[in-house]
Nucleic acid binder design. Sequence first.
DNA 1: AATAGTAGGCACATTTAAATAACCTAGTCA
DNA 2: TGACTAGGTTATTTAAATGTGCCTACTATT
Lengths: 126, 126
Amino acid sequence: MARFNFEGEPPAEQEVCHLTTTQNVIAGRWKIVVLWYLSQRTRRFNELQRLLPGISKGILTRQLRELEEDGMVHREVYKEVPPKVEYSLTPQGKSFIPALEIMGEWGKNYMEKKQNEQLDSEKPQI
Amino acid sequence: MARFNFEGEPPAEQEVCHLTTTQNVIAGRWKIVVLWYLSQRTRRFNELQRLLPGISKGILTRQLRELEEDGMVHREVYKEVPPKVEYSLTPQGKSFIPALEIMGEWGKNYMEKKQNEQLDSEKPQI
DNA sequence: AATAGTAGGCACATTTAAATAACCTAGTCA
DNA sequence: TGACTAGGTTATTTAAATGTGCCTACTATT
């Protein structure tokens, strides 16, 4: 059971393991976008909530807590009233920025190609 | 409503949109790993199922269909008995390989750092 | 004749994630 | 006294993702 190998390719197992690790960290409806907003600067809780229209406090809290547990995000609590909590990327989190950039680039190209395909199919008169 | 902007940063909206696009394509428990296995070579259905221990036929079918709909994967059906279906990356899918590589690299470094942290916490006698 | 391999389809059950809503806290201000 | 604030928690509901089991058709093998 748990046969990850196939016809002799030893590095495959490793690579799949690493990719799965990455996937587990960024899985979640909002995490990639949260990481990107934090890559720009430190943000407060309500600021993030405004930036993510449609997210609820509960789910934003969970996404941030999970990112914190995974060592991606630092949570700084200021003992003030009203409360103030700032979120920022840890060095670990910052090391993910190149991946965010390449994913953003890819998404941009992807959308452009999709739009071209649509334009092509709208005027198929040869 | 749907306020994506904050304190004057026009490119933010765009970038978030692109990242969301990417996320929608790769969201799914197995998609990243499937893409990676297909980046190596063309694979048949049962081959993929063997490579992904624990995945069921139904869910593998769906992940492949979604990747196909998103233009990432090509499905080639051979009219033979027993049936033979080969999956491969489209050019669009291949364009995602750099992202896979950077994510794999990141996951590797991430795990290494996690292990070092654990080792450090196991012998805290200064 | 019975069984296994191949690539699924389909209905259903279960699990997980996300969304909604109500409530909490401490201090500050009017 | 009561309202207001930021940043939550908790419980409940809903939706999405994933998994299970049984079905097909045809062939080859035992």
